[in-house]
């Protein structure tokens, strides 16, 4: 809040900082964070990680871009409506358990199997991954929507 900043001695609160170092490094770090987010997401089933953490981390990467550049630039980079992102995530997360009725199994019943892929060897395939994709999209969309709402209010 601006009044708090004023009390702390800031005479003028600057709107946007054009920091060359921040902008350049964030271009690199953005991809590292996104990759780590996907790594966490796919690690989710047997080791710590999953859709929620991955989604938050992906949102954090985009928020880094928001800090380094301004909102217009980021909107040009990623022309996504976050409401649609949330709705898509919810459809995937809620639609998959509903589909299990088609197979005659109760709500939320998952199927899984193991397949052999040339390079990686034996890989587990689990229908819960699709559910997690929904969670990933919803969480990332919610976090970004909240940040966007706060940023818009500040104009």
């Amino acid at each position: 809040m601006k009044s708090t900043l004023k009390k702390a001695g800031y005479s003028k609160v600057q709107k946007q900082v054009h920091d060359v170092f921040l902008q350049f490094t964030s271009k690199v770090i953005f991809f590292i964070i996104i990759l780590f987010a996907f790594k966490l997401f796919f690690a989710g089933h047997y080791t710590p990680g999953g859709g929620f953490v991955g989604g938050l981390l992906a949102a954090a990467a985009i928020i880094l871009l928001l800090i380094a550049f301004d909102q217009k630039t980021v909107e040009k980079m990623l022309p996504i409506d976050f409401r649609i992102l949330i709705a898509t995530g919810l459809v995937i997360a809620a639609g998959l358990p509903t589909l299990s009725f088609l197979f005659g199994t109760p709500f939320f019943t998952h199927q899984h199997t193991y397949i052999t892929v040339p390079v990686f060897g034996e890989v587990a395939l689990h229908s819960a991954v699709i559910f997690d994709v929904g969670v990933f999209l919803t969480v990332a969309g919610t976090a970004l929507l909240i940040i966007k709402l706060i940023a818009e209010e500040d104009d």
């Binding site: 809040m1 909240i146 709402l149």
Partner: peptide
């Protein structure tokens, strides 16, 4: 934790709206 995350983010947005609308925190 997921629920607490959603609530905290909503309450932050609400607090900002209140600060702008009512002019005080």
């Amino acid at each position: 934790i997921v629920i607490a995350f959603a609530l905290t983010s909503y309450i932050l947005v609400l607090a900002l709206r209140m600060y702008r609308e009512l002019g005080t925190d």
